[in-house]
């Protein structure tokens, strides 16, 4: 019976969550039907769906999605990995922390988009420039969160490791990294989120493929349908990335999510 009422409650929550989307959809449709704004600025919901299907069908969408995802992947791997390693070593070595920390913190103050013109002058307008730009975006959250996680490993656990003579790689993989893992995962999430934003920015700024390019080109030709479709697609991909990360997080941090059910047995 309790299970039943729980199910009812969940259903009620789901219905509540639908109120806003439905209202927005109704407002959108009526704004179009009542001709409250120009069709050049707002297309009907169904037309948006048609546009999405058309883009998918023509293969244009797939090409652009792959181009964007490829850039994110390469940029994130370069920036995220170097951020992780630097954060790890800074967390392990107080000297390195004091040596490199101030510069990294100071350079964080530069809004990274300001670097885009410089990166283009240095690396040209091709893929390399985009990788570098995305890598810079991915670097900062990773370095700070990894450092945070590693440098705050409790002294109690470090002592325990000493008592049981854990050193080197064993100390790192059994004590430091698991303890820092929640923080590292937060870093990965922010890092990937920023990568996804930076790729769209870089593609709007100058590219000949990618979802950002698709939207920027459509804007120049005043194709509102493609701009809106692009927005839906980048949102959906952002959502999926986040979702996948949440699943991975639950897997990796199972010890954190386990409740104290065992105690009541």
């Amino acid at each position: 019976m309790i299970k039943n009422s729980l199910k009812k409650l969940e259903l009620k929550d789901k219905l509540l969550a639908l109120i806003v989307p439905l209202l927005l959809l109704a407002a959108w449709q009526s704004a179009v039907s009542l001709e409250l704004c120009s069709p050049l600025l707002l297309i009907p919901p169904l037309t948006l769906l048609d546009t999405l299907l058309y883009l998918a069908d023509s293969g244009e969408l797939t090409i652009n999605i792959i181009a964007s995802l490829n850039r994110v992947l390469v940029g994130f791997l370069i920036g995220g990995l170097s951020g992780f390693l630097l954060g790890l070593f800074m967390g392990l070595s107080p000297f390195l922390d004091r040596f490199a920390g101030p510069l990294i913190k100071a350079s964080k103050q530069v809004p990274q988009f300001a670097l885009m013109p410089l990166i283009i002058l240095w690396f040209g307008v091709d893929e390399l420039a985009k990788y570098v730009f995305i890598a810079i975006g991915a670097f900062y959250p990773m370095v700070f969160n990894t450092y945070q996680g590693v440098s705050t490993v409790s002294k109690r656990y470090r002592e325990l490791a000493r008592v049981f003579d854990y050193r080197g790689a064993r100390f790192l993989t059994k004590v430091i990294l698991p303890s820092a893992m929640p923080s590292i995962i937060t870093g990965v999430r922010h890092s990937l989120g920023l990568s996804w934003m930076f790729v769209v920015g870089a593609e709007i700024f100058g590219a000949d493929t990618g979802l950002g390019y698709m939207m920027a080109a459509a804007r120049n030709m005043f194709q509102i349908d493609i701009v809106m479709a692009g927005l839906v697609v980048i949102g959906a991909i952002g959502f999926s990335i986040n979702f996948i990360l949440q699943v991975i997080e639950k897997r990796l941090l199972v010890w954190r999510f386990s409740s104290d059910q065992g105690a009541s047995k």
């Binding site: 656990y157 003579d165 004590v175 698991p178």
Partner: peptide, 20 residues
């Protein structure tokens, strides 16, 4: 220095939360 011929139980159980 520490050695495995001495065992220790701390006041806080000090179990590593990420290990079973």
């Amino acid at each position: 220095g520490p050695g495995t011929n001495r065992g220790i139980v701390f006041q806080d159980h000090r179990l590593l939360p990420w290990l079973t």
